[in-house]
Design a protein around this nucleic acid. Sequence first.
DNA 1: TATTGTTATACTCTATAACTATA
DNA 2: TATAGTTATAGAGTATAACAATA
Lengths: 151, 151
Amino acid sequence: MPETLEVESQAAETWTLLRTLFGQQRRRFLIAASDLALHPAQAGALVQLASPLPMNELAARLGCDSSNVTGLIDRLEARGLVTRRSSFHDRRVKHVVLTDSGQQLRERLLERVGQPTPGFERLSISEQRQLATLLRRILDDGTAAREKRSS
Amino acid sequence: MPETLEVESQAAETWTLLRTLFGQQRRRFLIAASDLALHPAQAGALVQLASPLPMNELAARLGCDSSNVTGLIDRLEARGLVTRRSSFHDRRVKHVVLTDSGQQLRERLLERVGQPTPGFERLSISEQRQLATLLRRILDDGTAAREKRSS
DNA sequence: TATTGTTATACTCTATAACTATA
DNA sequence: TATAGTTATAGAGTATAACAATA
């Protein structure tokens, strides 16, 4: 088998396995959100709010238009889960902040989706380390390379 | 550090990396769907329809109620992307089948989300194989173990 | 002028419950 | 009696375009 073909088929196979895991995790997420009376988008917003975020940034992370975030946050605010806080530096910007109640709900959500998927425990510590190393290589945003180029 | 703590923190770290990759892939998916004028749920349905599926099964895979799938498929059908085909064996069951047009759109979608995420190519073939092996251990549904127990 | 967030609009998604047809 | 799919309903998500306030 020519090397380029081998590269492609191995990549395809591995990526399919990852996508299977994605799908499994997505279903876990939807069930957890439903159990906590959250719509998927609301649950997604809660997950992102580890620290306060501008509406802007939240929209980017959720992959949707910022006009949606207005209504999304309106409803979370009506339920007492978040508040809006205007920025001192730029009065156009509003930061979304979790309330205590929102913090608690976020933790309950993360207890479920933040925990490794069932099956993960079959990996030994050294296998988990191996996996982490591989994932970091995929996720590496190339900061070092950019720094090198700009110098 | 006690071993149980070490296991937990290594697992937490590795799982966080996987979740980062999930989030990245989710955003890729949403952008691809939007570019093809598909709502996320419609795109999700198309991805599942590698082969015809009962409405039932589709709802399970999408993690939503089957009443939603009725409307979802109605709209895809109105756009000529799928058809309903009654089952011979059980006349209650309807299979959702892609039309040629639906097949083509599905392929365009998979060209984008079915391809490995940017950064994946940084792994060598042997690293990709390593990753595949680790993922298979996580995903293994324990068929062998069950067969062993039932014997 | 450009950017942040909001509003208005139209359409789609989502869960629940009640319903029909079939098993 | 149970199951597959549909319908009705109410509330939420989504993109687009137009708008106000601020930079």
